[in-house]
Design a protein around this nucleic acid. Structure first.
Lengths: 151, 151
DNA sequence: TAGAATCGGTTATGCGAATAACTATTATGC
DNA sequence: GCATAATAGTTATTCGCATAACCGATTCTA
């Protein structure tokens, strides 16, 4: 691949990251959330209480990041952490009532953001977009499933 | 749009950001670069010397970010900052010889990353990918002339 | 030409996210 | 059963990026 195309692609991904995150931040700010925290709330709303290691896996970020996010969400009263009875190392994270209500708000926001994001694209492109993005992500994922391709 | 699809999309973008950036970081680390800095080098290599305000515009990040990035790249000897003769507020940023050599390294890396990223996708999808991503980016761009539809 | 607004840049601060190093608990192997 | 490895979580530190507040230089304008 020539550099022009490669740079266009890499730069496009970088810029999309910046802008999508910034837009999410702007939408989440009125709820008192910073980008990244919404993913944690949504994951808890979807799957139910879980320990931080599972959160780390589900969110695709590292344990220290989960520690900080849970601490702040706990401080703002949206989640609760309780020691796991079966494993004294682990702590179970769950939504509070406030957190559940907030997650519902986030869900609505999330739909609005997604619609805004894909505005103007043909429906068929929109339909295959998540799959394409997932492929791209898997291709550069150094986290698991070692052994991509060359060398 | 229902929440399932919306979340799939937003989450896919978030994860792609994380992974692509992490992969870029892993590739750039041997060169002594952190992700984000490569964009600055490539922009200087493509367009030539410019002032920081132009860099801020070209990279799509805010002036304080440029200040920090330029400072670190200057400290590592890859760029040079000189006061602009025509405007005593501005400082002109340009590549050093070391920076030019590094930019060439980055270009090669960038091609490898792009190929790795789109591996397994049909060529026609790859061809229209930059355009799609650009559309997504423009749709959520709050930076300039934004505020298109609703509300 | 004096005053106001604007622009270029920096500093201070806060956030998410990463790695590295550490503690405490649980699981394994001999 | 005890030493060793593996696991859950935290702390410390670094980086990119953002906003807010500020300073010096420039440009507009009345």
């Amino acid at each position: 691949m020539d550099f022009e195309r490669a740079d266009a692609l890499n730069q496009a991904i970088r810029l999309l990251s910046l802008r999508h995150r910034a837009r999410a931040a702007a939408l989440l700010a009125p709820l008192g959330l910073h980008p990244g925290q919404e993913a944690l709330l949504l994951e808890l709303a979807r799957t139910g209480p879980m320990i931080q290691a599972q959160l780390s896996e589900a969110l695709g970020c590292e344990p220290p990041s989960v520690t900080l996010m849970t601490r702040k969400l706990e401080a703002s009263g949206h989640i609760r952490r309780a020691p796991a009875p079966s494993d004294r190392r682990a702590s179970i994270v769950e939504l509070t009532d406030s957190g559940r209500a907030l997650a519902d708000q986030v869900k609505r926001l999330w739909c609005a953001l997604a619609e805004e994001t894909v505005a103007g694209l043909p429906a068929e492109t929109v339909a295959e977009l998540p799959g394409i993005l997932a492929t791209l992500t898997a291709n550069v994922d150094t986290r698991r499933s070692r052994q991509p391709h060359g060398s």
